[in-house]
């Protein structure tokens, strides 16, 4: 059952031995020891587990690791660093967006893909792109401000 699977995770080539049916979220957290992304629902309903798979925002809690063999995985830790922040990270800090912060992977990874594909989105386009994500603390106003700030930075 266990197979050797090759991934690139946050820029690092990585090998792991796992059941291909294991959800990518558990592969990243349990096998590779990453703390992002988060388990929120296990049902692809909230976004807390979102990573980029070859640049596409993906709910890792329902994605079998066997389906992403050889692909490039990026978490929010791979978006940027304090020395070289992604514009969204800089904007999130400037706007002081997160409260509990547990939902961040969903919003930031989805918005990062939006801004890459559509660098100057309208308010309606931002809302449409971020549909389906959850934030229980109600930081939505700050999220909108941060995405707009990142878009104009």
């Amino acid at each position: 059952m266990t197979e050797r699977i090759r991934l690139v995770v946050d820029g690092k080539p990585t090998l792991l031995d796992a059941d291909p049916a294991l959800p990518l979220l558990y592969a990243l957290r349990s096998e590779l020891g990453l703390n992002n992304p988060k388990f929120g629902c296990g049902l692809a309903q909230c976004g807390a587990c979102t990573v980029h798979v070859d640049g596409q925002p993906t709910r890792s809690c329902v994605m079998p690791v066997g389906a992403v063999r050889g692909k490039t995985i990026t978490t929010i830790a791979g978006l940027g660093t304090p020395d070289q922040p992604h514009p969204l990270q800089a904007a999130y800090i400037a706007e002081q967006v997160p409260q509990c912060g547990y939902c961040l992977s969903g919003w930031m990874m989805t918005a990062a893909a939006l801004l890459r594909d559509r660098p100057r989105p309208t308010d309606a386009q931002i809302r449409e792109a971020l549909a389906g994500l959850k934030c229980r603390c109600g930081t939505h106003m700050a999220i909108l401000r941060a995405v707009k700030r990142a878009a104009t930075s």
């Binding site: 703390n35 992002n36 988060k38 388990f39 978490t75 929010i76 830790a77 978006l79 940027g80 660093t81 304090p82 922040p85 990270q89 999130y92 800090i93 002081q96 967006v97 997160p98 912060g101 547990y102 961040l104 992977s105 930031m108």
Partner: peptide
């Protein structure tokens, strides 16, 4: 500003789940 926001945004904060 809250300093911990930076840890959250760069994905370095350890939560209880971690």
């Amino acid at each position: 500003p809250q300093k911990i926001v930076t840890e959250k945004v760069y994905g370095t904060l350890r939560y209880v789940t971690d």
